[in-house]
Design a protein around this nucleic acid. Sequence first.
DNA 1: GTGGTCTAGACCACC
DNA 2: GTGGTCTAGACCACC
Lengths: 143, 143, 143, 143
Amino acid sequence: MRMAWKFDQGNPIYLQIIQVLESKILSGEYKPGDKLESVRDLASLAGVNPNTMQKALSEMEGMGLIYTQRTAGRFITEDAATIKNLRLATAQSKTDEFVGELNRLGYTTDEIIRIIKGEYKKEEAARAVSNLEDYLKGEQHEQ
Amino acid sequence: MRMAWKFDQGNPIYLQIIQVLESKILSGEYKPGDKLESVRDLASLAGVNPNTMQKALSEMEGMGLIYTQRTAGRFITEDAATIKNLRLATAQSKTDEFVGELNRLGYTTDEIIRIIKGEYKKEEAARAVSNLEDYLKGEQHEQ
Amino acid sequence: MRMAWKFDQGNPIYLQIIQVLESKILSGEYKPGDKLESVRDLASLAGVNPNTMQKALSEMEGMGLIYTQRTAGRFITEDAATIKNLRLATAQSKTDEFVGELNRLGYTTDEIIRIIKGEYKKEEAARAVSNLEDYLKGEQHEQ
Amino acid sequence: MRMAWKFDQGNPIYLQIIQVLESKILSGEYKPGDKLESVRDLASLAGVNPNTMQKALSEMEGMGLIYTQRTAGRFITEDAATIKNLRLATAQSKTDEFVGELNRLGYTTDEIIRIIKGEYKKEEAARAVSNLEDYLKGEQHEQ
DNA sequence: GTGGTCTAGACCACC
DNA sequence: GTGGTCTAGACCACC
Protein backbone atom coordinates (compact mmCIF):
# COMPACT_ATOMS: atom_id res chain seq x y z
CA MET A 1 0.00 0.00 0.00
CA ARG A 2 1.35 3.39 -1.10
CA MET A 3 1.30 6.59 0.84
CA ALA A 4 -2.00 8.42 0.42
CA TRP A 5 -1.74 11.75 -1.44
CA LYS A 6 -1.08 14.75 0.72
CA PHE A 7 -3.97 17.18 1.14
CA ASP A 8 -3.97 20.35 3.10
CA GLN A 9 -6.88 20.68 5.47
CA GLY A 10 -8.86 23.84 4.80
CA ASN A 11 -9.49 23.35 1.11
CA PRO A 12 -12.05 20.84 -0.11
CA ILE A 13 -10.36 17.56 -0.93
CA TYR A 14 -12.14 17.07 -4.25
CA LEU A 15 -10.74 20.42 -5.47
CA GLN A 16 -7.23 19.36 -4.49
CA ILE A 17 -7.71 16.10 -6.36
CA ILE A 18 -8.76 18.03 -9.45
CA GLN A 19 -5.65 20.18 -9.19
CA VAL A 20 -3.41 17.12 -9.02
CA LEU A 21 -5.04 15.32 -11.96
CA GLU A 22 -5.36 18.49 -14.02
CA SER A 23 -1.65 19.21 -13.59
CA LYS A 24 -0.80 15.71 -14.76
CA ILE A 25 -2.90 16.19 -17.89
CA LEU A 26 -1.78 19.73 -18.69
CA SER A 27 1.88 18.91 -18.11
CA GLY A 28 1.66 15.87 -20.37
CA GLU A 29 2.24 13.26 -17.69
CA TYR A 30 -1.11 11.83 -18.80
CA LYS A 31 -1.26 11.77 -22.63
CA PRO A 32 -4.42 12.31 -24.70
CA GLY A 33 -6.34 9.04 -24.91
CA ASP A 34 -4.65 7.48 -21.87
CA LYS A 35 -6.92 5.29 -19.76
CA LEU A 36 -7.46 6.44 -16.19
CA GLU A 37 -7.33 4.05 -13.25
CA SER A 38 -10.77 3.09 -11.91
CA VAL A 39 -12.53 5.31 -9.40
CA ARG A 40 -11.93 2.71 -6.71
CA ASP A 41 -8.24 2.41 -7.49
CA LEU A 42 -7.75 6.17 -7.68
CA ALA A 43 -9.66 6.63 -4.42
CA SER A 44 -7.52 4.00 -2.78
CA LEU A 45 -4.31 5.56 -4.14
CA ALA A 46 -5.36 9.00 -2.91
CA GLY A 47 -6.62 7.68 0.38
CA VAL A 48 -10.04 9.27 0.03
CA ASN A 49 -13.63 8.17 -0.03
CA PRO A 50 -14.69 6.88 -3.52
CA ASN A 51 -17.53 9.42 -3.47
CA THR A 52 -14.98 12.21 -3.21
CA MET A 53 -12.96 10.87 -6.15
CA GLN A 54 -16.16 10.39 -8.11
CA LYS A 55 -17.08 14.03 -7.56
CA ALA A 56 -13.65 15.22 -8.71
CA LEU A 57 -13.79 13.13 -11.89
CA SER A 58 -17.33 14.27 -12.69
CA GLU A 59 -16.22 17.88 -12.50
CA MET A 60 -13.27 17.19 -14.75
CA GLU A 61 -15.56 15.52 -17.23
CA GLY A 62 -17.62 18.70 -17.22
CA MET A 63 -14.45 20.63 -18.05
CA GLY A 64 -13.89 18.39 -21.06
CA LEU A 65 -10.59 17.01 -19.78
CA ILE A 66 -11.76 13.41 -19.46
CA TYR A 67 -14.60 11.39 -20.89
CA THR A 68 -16.37 8.18 -19.96
CA GLN A 69 -16.77 5.24 -22.31
CA ARG A 70 -19.72 3.04 -21.43
CA THR A 71 -18.15 0.02 -19.77
CA ALA A 72 -14.49 0.58 -20.60
CA GLY A 73 -13.84 3.31 -18.07
CA ARG A 74 -12.58 6.89 -18.17
CA PHE A 75 -10.02 8.32 -20.60
CA ILE A 76 -8.05 11.53 -21.05
CA THR A 77 -9.58 13.64 -23.81
CA GLU A 78 -8.01 13.05 -27.23
CA ASP A 79 -8.49 16.68 -28.14
CA ALA A 80 -4.93 17.95 -27.74
CA ALA A 81 -6.00 21.50 -28.57
CA THR A 82 -8.31 21.62 -25.54
CA ILE A 83 -5.45 20.59 -23.32
CA LYS A 84 -3.04 23.06 -24.87
CA ASN A 85 -5.50 25.93 -24.63
CA LEU A 86 -6.38 25.16 -21.06
CA ARG A 87 -2.71 24.97 -20.13
CA LEU A 88 -2.13 28.43 -21.58
CA ALA A 89 -5.30 29.91 -20.10
CA THR A 90 -4.42 28.50 -16.68
CA ALA A 91 -0.93 29.95 -16.86
CA GLN A 92 -2.29 33.33 -17.92
CA SER A 93 -4.96 33.55 -15.23
CA LYS A 94 -2.61 32.39 -12.49
CA THR A 95 -0.07 34.95 -13.65
CA ASP A 96 -2.68 37.69 -13.72
CA GLU A 97 -3.76 36.85 -10.21
CA PHE A 98 -0.21 36.58 -8.89
CA VAL A 99 1.02 39.80 -10.46
CA GLY A 100 -2.13 41.59 -9.32
CA GLU A 101 -1.60 40.50 -5.74
CA LEU A 102 2.03 41.56 -5.67
CA ASN A 103 1.20 44.86 -7.33
CA ARG A 104 -1.31 45.45 -4.58
CA LEU A 105 1.53 44.93 -2.09
CA GLY A 106 3.46 47.66 -3.88
CA TYR A 107 5.87 45.53 -5.93
CA THR A 108 6.63 46.60 -9.49
CA THR A 109 6.82 44.06 -12.28
CA ASP A 110 10.60 44.46 -12.33
CA GLU A 111 10.80 43.68 -8.64
CA ILE A 112 8.58 40.61 -9.10
CA ILE A 113 10.84 39.29 -11.84
CA ARG A 114 13.87 39.96 -9.72
CA ILE A 115 12.34 37.90 -6.90
CA ILE A 116 11.60 35.00 -9.25
CA LYS A 117 15.03 35.13 -10.87
CA GLY A 118 17.11 35.47 -7.76
CA GLU A 119 15.16 32.84 -5.88
CA TYR A 120 15.07 35.49 -3.12
CA LYS A 121 18.83 35.32 -2.54
CA LYS A 122 19.41 39.05 -2.62
CA GLU A 123 16.20 39.84 -0.77
CA GLU A 124 17.21 37.48 1.98
CA ALA A 125 20.48 39.23 2.62
CA ALA A 126 18.79 42.64 2.71
CA ARG A 127 16.12 41.34 5.01
CA ALA A 128 18.66 39.88 7.41
CA VAL A 129 20.37 43.25 7.63
CA SER A 130 17.08 45.06 8.08
CA ASN A 131 15.94 42.65 10.79
CA LEU A 132 19.19 43.23 12.61
CA GLU A 133 18.65 46.97 12.44
CA ASP A 134 15.07 46.59 13.70
CA TYR A 135 16.33 44.39 16.49
CA LEU A 136 18.90 46.94 17.57
CA LYS A 137 16.34 49.74 17.47
CA GLY A 138 13.99 47.58 19.52
CA GLU A 139 16.69 46.99 22.13
CA GLN A 140 17.15 50.71 22.65
CA HIS A 141 13.42 51.14 22.96
CA GLU A 142 12.99 48.50 25.58
CA GLN A 143 15.78 49.63 27.83
CA MET B 1 -23.69 56.40 -1.16
CA ARG B 2 -20.61 54.67 -2.56
CA MET B 3 -20.45 51.32 -4.28
CA ALA B 4 -20.09 48.42 -1.84
CA TRP B 5 -16.82 46.49 -2.13
CA LYS B 6 -16.86 43.67 -4.67
CA PHE B 7 -16.61 40.14 -3.29
CA ASP B 8 -16.45 36.96 -5.30
CA GLN B 9 -18.78 34.23 -4.13
CA GLY B 10 -17.04 31.02 -3.15
CA ASN B 11 -14.61 32.53 -0.68
CA PRO B 12 -15.86 33.70 2.71
CA ILE B 13 -16.44 37.42 2.74
CA TYR B 14 -14.51 37.99 5.96
CA LEU B 15 -11.40 36.45 4.36
CA GLN B 16 -11.73 38.73 1.37
CA ILE B 17 -12.09 41.70 3.68
CA ILE B 18 -8.88 40.67 5.42
CA GLN B 19 -7.09 40.51 2.08
CA VAL B 20 -8.25 43.99 1.14
CA LEU B 21 -7.28 45.58 4.44
CA GLU B 22 -4.04 43.61 4.71
CA SER B 23 -2.99 44.82 1.27
CA LYS B 24 -3.66 48.39 2.29
CA ILE B 25 -1.48 47.97 5.36
CA LEU B 26 1.35 46.08 3.67
CA SER B 27 1.43 48.45 0.70
CA GLY B 28 1.61 51.47 2.97
CA GLU B 29 -1.79 52.93 2.06
CA TYR B 30 -2.56 52.66 5.76
CA LYS B 31 0.42 53.89 7.79
CA PRO B 32 1.49 52.53 11.21
CA GLY B 33 -0.64 54.15 13.90
CA ASP B 34 -3.42 55.27 11.54
CA LYS B 35 -6.91 55.07 12.95
CA LEU B 36 -9.25 52.68 11.18
CA GLU B 37 -12.81 53.63 10.40
CA SER B 38 -15.25 52.24 12.99
CA VAL B 39 -16.62 48.73 12.61
CA ARG B 40 -20.00 50.13 11.66
CA ASP B 41 -18.56 52.52 9.09
CA LEU B 42 -16.33 49.89 7.53
CA ALA B 43 -19.24 47.45 7.42
CA SER B 44 -21.37 50.04 5.73
CA LEU B 45 -18.63 50.88 3.23
CA ALA B 46 -18.08 47.23 2.39
CA GLY B 47 -21.80 46.51 2.28
CA VAL B 48 -21.65 43.70 4.85
CA ASN B 49 -23.10 43.02 8.26
CA PRO B 50 -21.15 44.62 11.16
CA ASN B 51 -20.60 41.16 12.64
CA THR B 52 -18.82 40.04 9.50
CA MET B 53 -16.54 43.07 9.58
CA GLN B 54 -15.98 42.49 13.30
CA LYS B 55 -14.85 38.94 12.59
CA ALA B 56 -12.39 40.10 9.93
CA LEU B 57 -10.92 42.75 12.22
CA SER B 58 -10.64 40.35 15.15
CA GLU B 59 -8.63 37.96 13.01
CA MET B 60 -6.35 40.77 11.90
CA GLU B 61 -5.84 41.71 15.52
CA GLY B 62 -4.75 38.11 16.13
CA MET B 63 -2.23 38.54 13.30
CA GLY B 64 -0.81 41.60 15.04
CA LEU B 65 -1.65 43.97 12.19
CA ILE B 66 -4.11 46.09 14.14
CA TYR B 67 -4.87 46.73 17.80
CA THR B 68 -7.89 47.92 19.70
CA GLN B 69 -8.04 50.80 22.14
CA ARG B 70 -11.12 50.41 24.30
CA THR B 71 -13.84 52.86 23.28
CA ALA B 72 -11.43 54.84 21.10
CA GLY B 73 -11.34 52.55 18.09
CA ARG B 74 -8.93 50.38 16.17
CA PHE B 75 -5.49 51.36 14.92
CA ILE B 76 -2.85 50.02 12.54
CA THR B 77 0.02 48.49 14.48
CA GLU B 78 2.86 50.91 15.12
CA ASP B 79 5.39 48.15 14.73
CA ALA B 80 6.69 48.95 11.26
CA ALA B 81 8.99 45.93 11.34
CA THR B 82 6.06 43.53 11.62
CA ILE B 83 4.48 45.10 8.57
CA LYS B 84 7.71 45.09 6.60
CA ASN B 85 8.49 41.50 7.42
CA LEU B 86 4.98 40.32 6.65
CA ARG B 87 5.07 42.13 3.31
CA LEU B 88 8.25 40.31 2.35
CA ALA B 89 7.09 36.95 3.69
CA THR B 90 3.80 37.29 1.83
CA ALA B 91 5.55 38.14 -1.43
CA GLN B 92 7.88 35.20 -1.07
CA SER B 93 5.26 32.61 -0.21
CA LYS B 94 2.97 33.79 -3.01
CA THR B 95 5.90 33.62 -5.42
CA ASP B 96 6.84 30.13 -4.23
CA GLU B 97 3.31 28.91 -4.72
CA PHE B 98 2.94 30.56 -8.12
CA VAL B 99 6.24 29.34 -9.50
CA GLY B 100 5.54 25.86 -8.13
CA GLU B 101 2.18 25.70 -9.86
CA LEU B 102 3.50 26.85 -13.19
CA ASN B 103 6.45 24.48 -12.93
CA ARG B 104 3.98 21.68 -12.39
CA LEU B 105 2.32 22.74 -15.65
CA GLY B 106 5.67 22.37 -17.35
CA TYR B 107 6.73 26.01 -17.57
CA THR B 108 10.34 26.93 -16.97
CA THR B 109 11.32 29.98 -14.97
CA ASP B 110 12.33 31.76 -18.17
CA GLU B 111 8.93 31.09 -19.71
CA ILE B 112 7.19 32.36 -16.59
CA ILE B 113 9.14 35.59 -16.73
CA ARG B 114 8.35 36.00 -20.40
CA ILE B 115 4.61 35.66 -19.63
CA ILE B 116 4.84 38.25 -16.91
CA LYS B 117 6.77 40.68 -19.09
CA GLY B 118 4.46 40.34 -22.09
CA GLU B 119 1.38 40.84 -20.04
CA TYR B 120 2.33 43.87 -18.13
CA LYS B 121 4.62 45.97 -20.28
CA LYS B 122 2.20 48.82 -20.84
CA GLU B 123 1.04 49.27 -17.31
CA GLU B 124 4.57 49.20 -15.97
CA ALA B 125 5.47 52.81 -16.46
CA ALA B 126 2.37 54.19 -14.78
CA ARG B 127 2.79 51.89 -11.81
CA ALA B 128 6.44 52.76 -11.38
CA VAL B 129 5.58 56.43 -11.05
CA SER B 130 2.74 55.77 -8.62
CA ASN B 131 4.87 53.46 -6.46
CA LEU B 132 7.64 56.02 -6.34
CA GLU B 133 5.23 58.62 -5.05
CA ASP B 134 3.90 56.27 -2.37
CA TYR B 135 7.44 55.35 -1.40
CA LEU B 136 8.50 58.94 -0.97
CA LYS B 137 5.44 59.73 1.13
CA GLY B 138 6.15 56.67 3.30
CA GLU B 139 9.77 57.66 3.83
CA GLN B 140 8.86 61.08 5.18
CA HIS B 141 6.42 59.52 7.59
CA GLU B 142 8.82 56.94 8.96
CA GLN B 143 11.78 59.23 9.55
CA MET C 1 -32.67 17.19 29.70
CA ARG C 2 -29.64 18.06 31.81
CA MET C 3 -28.95 21.29 33.62
CA ALA C 4 -27.30 23.92 31.43
CA TRP C 5 -23.78 24.91 32.51
CA LYS C 6 -23.60 27.72 35.07
CA PHE C 7 -22.15 31.00 33.91
CA ASP C 8 -21.58 34.09 36.00
CA GLN C 9 -22.78 37.31 34.44
CA GLY C 10 -20.09 39.90 33.96
CA ASN C 11 -17.64 37.73 32.07
CA PRO C 12 -18.36 36.84 28.45
CA ILE C 13 -19.92 33.40 28.17
CA TYR C 14 -17.54 32.25 25.45
CA LEU C 15 -14.58 32.94 27.74
CA GLN C 16 -16.17 30.91 30.51
CA ILE C 17 -16.78 28.08 28.08
CA ILE C 18 -13.10 28.17 27.13
CA GLN C 19 -12.13 27.95 30.79
CA VAL C 20 -14.36 24.92 31.33
CA LEU C 21 -13.13 23.04 28.28
CA GLU C 22 -9.52 24.07 28.80
CA SER C 23 -9.61 22.72 32.34
CA LYS C 24 -10.97 19.42 31.08
CA ILE C 25 -8.13 19.15 28.60
CA LEU C 26 -5.34 20.26 30.93
CA SER C 27 -6.55 18.04 33.76
CA GLY C 28 -6.70 15.02 31.48
CA GLU C 29 -10.47 14.55 31.57
CA TYR C 30 -10.29 14.92 27.79
CA LYS C 31 -7.36 12.88 26.46
CA PRO C 32 -5.26 13.81 23.40
CA GLY C 33 -7.09 12.73 20.25
CA ASP C 34 -10.51 12.46 21.91
CA LYS C 35 -13.42 13.55 19.76
CA LEU C 36 -15.37 16.53 21.04
CA GLU C 37 -19.13 16.60 20.99
CA SER C 38 -20.48 18.51 17.96
CA VAL C 39 -20.90 22.26 18.15
CA ARG C 40 -24.66 21.86 18.27
CA ASP C 41 -24.52 19.24 21.02
CA LEU C 42 -22.07 21.22 23.12
CA ALA C 43 -24.17 24.35 22.64
CA SER C 44 -27.24 22.48 23.74
CA LEU C 45 -25.45 21.00 26.76
CA ALA C 46 -24.15 24.40 27.80
CA GLY C 47 -27.47 26.10 27.12
CA VAL C 48 -26.01 28.68 24.73
CA ASN C 49 -26.41 29.62 21.10
CA PRO C 50 -24.37 27.49 18.68
CA ASN C 51 -22.59 30.63 17.45
CA THR C 52 -21.33 31.31 20.96
CA MET C 53 -19.98 27.77 21.29
CA GLN C 54 -18.48 28.07 17.83
CA LYS C 55 -16.64 31.21 18.88
CA ALA C 56 -15.22 29.52 21.97
CA LEU C 57 -14.06 26.50 19.98
CA SER C 58 -12.48 28.66 17.27
CA GLU C 59 -10.44 30.48 19.88
CA MET C 60 -9.30 27.20 21.37
CA GLU C 61 -8.29 26.06 17.92
CA GLY C 62 -6.16 29.18 17.68
CA MET C 63 -4.54 28.21 20.98
CA GLY C 64 -3.63 24.83 19.52
CA LEU C 65 -5.70 22.87 22.03
CA ILE C 66 -8.13 21.41 19.51
CA TYR C 67 -8.21 20.89 15.76
CA THR C 68 -10.94 20.50 13.21
CA GLN C 69 -11.31 17.70 10.72
CA ARG C 70 -13.65 18.82 7.96
CA THR C 71 -17.04 17.20 8.27
CA ALA C 72 -15.78 14.72 10.85
CA GLY C 73 -15.78 17.01 13.86
CA ARG C 74 -13.37 18.50 16.34
CA PHE C 75 -10.67 16.69 18.29
CA ILE C 76 -8.36 17.34 21.22
CA THR C 77 -4.82 17.99 20.01
CA GLU C 78 -2.68 14.86 19.93
CA ASP C 79 0.35 16.87 20.97
CA ALA C 80 0.58 15.84 24.61
CA ALA C 81 3.58 18.11 25.14
CA THR C 82 1.53 21.21 24.30
CA ILE C 83 -1.05 20.22 26.87
CA LYS C 84 1.54 19.41 29.51
CA ASN C 85 3.44 22.61 29.00
CA LEU C 86 0.29 24.74 29.03
CA ARG C 87 -0.85 23.06 32.24
CA LEU C 88 2.40 24.00 33.93
CA ALA C 89 2.53 27.48 32.47
CA THR C 90 -1.06 28.11 33.55
CA ALA C 91 -0.37 26.92 37.08
CA GLN C 92 2.67 29.13 37.33
CA SER C 93 1.08 32.28 36.00
CA LYS C 94 -1.97 31.84 38.19
CA THR C 95 0.27 31.29 41.18
CA ASP C 96 2.33 34.37 40.35
CA GLU C 97 -0.77 36.49 40.10
CA PHE C 98 -2.32 35.09 43.27
CA VAL C 99 0.80 35.43 45.40
CA GLY C 100 1.37 38.92 44.04
CA GLU C 101 -2.13 40.03 44.97
CA LEU C 102 -1.92 38.66 48.47
CA ASN C 103 1.53 40.14 48.95
CA ARG C 104 0.06 43.50 47.98
CA LEU C 105 -2.51 42.99 50.76
CA GLY C 106 0.37 42.50 53.17
CA TYR C 107 0.34 38.73 53.50
CA THR C 108 3.64 36.87 53.68
CA THR C 109 4.18 33.61 51.83
CA ASP C 110 3.96 31.70 55.11
CA GLU C 111 0.61 33.30 55.89
CA ILE C 112 -0.67 32.46 52.41
CA ILE C 113 0.28 28.82 52.85
CA ARG C 114 -1.40 28.74 56.24
CA ILE C 115 -4.63 30.04 54.70
CA ILE C 116 -4.52 27.40 51.99
CA LYS C 117 -3.83 24.61 54.47
CA GLY C 118 -6.51 25.64 56.92
CA GLU C 119 -9.14 25.97 54.29
CA TYR C 120 -8.67 22.75 52.48
CA LYS C 121 -7.60 20.16 55.02
CA LYS C 122 -10.72 18.06 54.93
CA GLU C 123 -11.15 17.83 51.20
CA GLU C 124 -7.55 16.95 50.68
CA ALA C 125 -7.75 13.22 51.27
CA ALA C 126 -10.66 12.67 48.88
CA ARG C 127 -9.01 14.68 46.17
CA ALA C 128 -5.71 12.90 46.53
CA VAL C 129 -7.39 9.57 45.90
CA SER C 130 -9.33 10.87 42.91
CA ASN C 131 -6.26 12.52 41.41
CA LEU C 132 -4.28 9.34 41.84
CA GLU C 133 -6.89 7.41 39.89
CA ASP C 134 -6.89 9.96 37.08
CA TYR C 135 -3.13 9.94 37.02
CA LEU C 136 -2.93 6.19 36.69
CA LYS C 137 -5.49 6.16 33.89
CA GLY C 138 -3.57 8.91 32.11
CA GLU C 139 -0.28 7.06 32.43
CA GLN C 140 -1.62 3.97 30.71
CA HIS C 141 -2.96 6.07 27.85
CA GLU C 142 0.23 7.95 27.25
CA GLN C 143 2.60 5.03 27.20
CA MET D 1 4.83 65.09 35.89
CA ARG D 2 5.00 61.51 37.15
CA MET D 3 4.53 58.37 35.09
CA ALA D 4 0.86 57.52 34.69
CA TRP D 5 -0.23 54.31 36.41
CA LYS D 6 0.08 51.18 34.34
CA PHE D 7 -3.19 49.60 33.19
CA ASP D 8 -3.59 46.50 31.15
CA GLN D 9 -5.89 46.89 28.20
CA GLY D 10 -8.73 44.40 28.30
CA ASN D 11 -10.01 45.16 31.77
CA PRO D 12 -12.03 48.30 32.49
CA ILE D 13 -9.76 51.01 33.78
CA TYR D 14 -12.02 52.04 36.65
CA LEU D 15 -11.87 48.48 38.02
CA GLN D 16 -8.10 48.52 37.89
CA ILE D 17 -8.08 51.84 39.72
CA ILE D 18 -10.26 50.34 42.44
CA GLN D 19 -7.86 47.43 42.80
CA VAL D 20 -4.91 49.77 43.24
CA LEU D 21 -6.61 52.01 45.80
CA GLU D 22 -8.22 49.11 47.62
CA SER D 23 -4.84 47.41 48.01
CA LYS D 24 -3.38 50.57 49.47
CA ILE D 25 -6.16 50.75 52.03
CA LEU D 26 -6.23 47.07 52.94
CA SER D 27 -2.45 46.86 53.21
CA GLY D 28 -2.35 49.90 55.47
CA GLU D 29 -0.52 52.21 53.09
CA TYR D 30 -3.54 54.48 53.48
CA LYS D 31 -4.52 54.66 57.18
CA PRO D 32 -8.08 55.04 58.49
CA GLY D 33 -9.05 58.70 58.38
CA ASP D 34 -6.38 59.71 55.85
CA LYS D 35 -7.44 62.36 53.37
CA LEU D 36 -7.46 61.30 49.71
CA GLU D 37 -6.06 63.50 46.97
CA SER D 38 -8.72 65.33 44.94
CA VAL D 39 -10.40 63.59 42.01
CA ARG D 40 -8.54 65.88 39.66
CA ASP D 41 -5.17 65.19 41.23
CA LEU D 42 -5.76 61.46 41.39
CA ALA D 43 -6.94 61.43 37.77
CA SER D 44 -3.87 63.36 36.74
CA LEU D 45 -1.59 61.03 38.71
CA ALA D 46 -3.21 57.97 37.17
CA GLY D 47 -3.29 59.49 33.71
CA VAL D 48 -7.01 58.89 33.25
CA ASN D 49 -10.11 60.91 32.55
CA PRO D 50 -11.52 62.53 35.76
CA ASN D 51 -14.86 60.85 35.01
CA THR D 52 -13.17 57.47 35.20
CA MET D 53 -11.55 58.28 38.55
CA GLN D 54 -14.87 59.64 39.78
CA LYS D 55 -16.58 56.37 38.90
CA ALA D 56 -13.93 54.34 40.72
CA LEU D 57 -14.21 56.48 43.87
CA SER D 58 -18.01 56.34 43.83
CA GLU D 59 -17.90 52.56 43.76
CA MET D 60 -15.43 52.49 46.65
CA GLU D 61 -17.71 54.78 48.60
CA GLY D 62 -20.47 52.25 48.02
CA MET D 63 -18.18 49.57 49.45
CA GLY D 64 -17.73 51.63 52.61
CA LEU D 65 -14.00 52.08 52.15
CA ILE D 66 -14.08 55.84 51.72
CA TYR D 67 -16.51 58.58 52.56
CA THR D 68 -17.12 62.12 51.36
CA GLN D 69 -17.23 65.13 53.66
CA ARG D 70 -19.22 68.04 52.23
CA THR D 71 -16.56 70.46 51.10
CA ALA D 72 -13.48 68.96 52.70
CA GLY D 73 -13.00 66.07 50.27
CA ARG D 74 -12.81 62.33 50.52
CA PHE D 75 -11.35 60.30 53.38
CA ILE D 76 -10.47 56.71 54.15
CA THR D 77 -13.05 55.14 56.44
CA GLU D 78 -12.19 55.36 60.11
CA ASP D 79 -13.80 52.01 60.77
CA ALA D 80 -10.68 49.84 61.14
CA ALA D 81 -12.81 46.72 61.58
CA THR D 82 -14.35 47.15 58.12
CA ILE D 83 -10.88 47.33 56.61
CA LYS D 84 -9.64 44.35 58.57
CA ASN D 85 -12.66 42.22 57.69
CA LEU D 86 -12.51 43.12 54.02
CA ARG D 87 -8.81 42.30 53.96
CA LEU D 88 -9.49 38.86 55.35
CA ALA D 89 -12.53 38.24 53.17
CA THR D 90 -10.58 39.27 50.08
CA ALA D 91 -7.73 36.94 50.96
CA GLN D 92 -10.15 34.09 51.57
CA SER D 93 -12.10 34.52 48.35
CA LYS D 94 -8.98 34.94 46.26
CA THR D 95 -7.54 31.84 47.85
CA ASP D 96 -10.74 29.88 47.23
CA GLU D 97 -10.74 30.89 43.61
CA PHE D 98 -7.05 30.16 43.13
CA VAL D 99 -7.09 26.78 44.82
CA GLY D 100 -10.27 25.86 42.95
CA GLU D 101 -8.69 26.67 39.61
CA LEU D 102 -5.56 24.68 40.30
CA ASN D 103 -7.58 21.77 41.62
CA ARG D 104 -9.49 21.79 38.36
CA LEU D 105 -6.13 21.46 36.60
CA GLY D 106 -5.44 18.37 38.68
CA TYR D 107 -3.08 19.84 41.26
CA THR D 108 -3.43 18.69 44.88
CA THR D 109 -3.19 21.15 47.72
CA ASP D 110 0.23 19.76 48.56
CA GLU D 111 1.46 20.39 45.06
CA ILE D 112 0.09 23.93 45.13
CA ILE D 113 1.93 24.67 48.35
CA ARG D 114 5.08 23.16 46.94
CA ILE D 115 4.82 25.49 43.93
CA ILE D 116 4.37 28.53 46.15
CA LYS D 117 7.19 27.53 48.51
CA GLY D 118 9.76 26.58 45.96
CA GLU D 119 9.06 29.58 43.80
CA TYR D 120 8.92 26.97 41.02
CA LYS D 121 12.63 26.17 41.26
CA LYS D 122 12.17 22.43 41.37
CA GLU D 123 9.37 22.45 38.82
CA GLU D 124 11.52 24.36 36.42
CA ALA D 125 14.28 21.78 36.46
CA ALA D 126 11.82 18.94 35.91
CA ARG D 127 10.17 20.84 33.11
CA ALA D 128 13.45 21.51 31.38
CA VAL D 129 14.20 17.79 31.43
CA SER D 130 10.71 16.95 30.22
CA ASN D 131 10.89 19.50 27.42
CA LEU D 132 14.16 18.00 26.34
CA GLU D 133 12.60 14.56 26.24
CA ASP D 134 9.64 15.87 24.27
CA TYR D 135 12.00 17.56 21.88
CA LEU D 136 13.94 14.39 21.28
CA LYS D 137 10.75 12.40 20.75
CA GLY D 138 9.55 15.08 18.32
CA GLU D 139 12.79 14.82 16.39
CA GLN D 140 12.31 11.13 15.83
CA HIS D 141 8.76 11.73 14.70
CA GLU D 142 9.63 14.35 12.16
CA GLN D 143 12.42 12.45 10.46
C1' DG E 1 -19.85 57.01 19.53
C1' DT E 2 -16.63 53.11 20.38
C1' DG E 3 -15.86 47.95 20.47
C1' DG E 4 -17.94 43.66 22.00
C1' DT E 5 -21.29 39.85 22.92
C1' DC E 6 -25.19 37.11 22.15
C1' DT E 7 -29.27 35.15 20.05
C1' DA E 8 -32.31 33.37 16.39
C1' DG E 9 -32.38 31.64 12.28
C1' DA E 10 -31.06 30.64 7.60
C1' DC E 11 -28.04 28.66 4.33
C1' DC E 12 -23.83 26.26 2.49
C1' DA E 13 -20.22 22.59 1.22
C1' DC E 14 -18.57 18.27 2.32
C1' DC E 15 -18.93 13.30 3.14
C1' DG F 1 -24.62 14.90 10.38
C1' DT F 2 -20.38 17.80 10.42
C1' DG F 3 -18.28 22.56 10.68
C1' DG F 4 -18.71 27.21 8.86
C1' DT F 5 -20.63 31.75 7.31
C1' DC F 6 -23.72 35.45 7.29
C1' DT F 7 -27.49 38.50 8.49
C1' DA F 8 -30.66 41.12 11.43
C1' DG F 9 -31.17 42.93 15.45
C1' DA F 10 -30.71 43.69 20.34
C1' DC F 11 -28.08 44.88 24.27
C1' DC F 12 -23.92 46.13 27.08
C1' DA F 13 -19.85 48.74 29.21
C1' DC F 14 -16.88 52.40 28.68
C1' DC F 15 -15.71 57.25 27.95
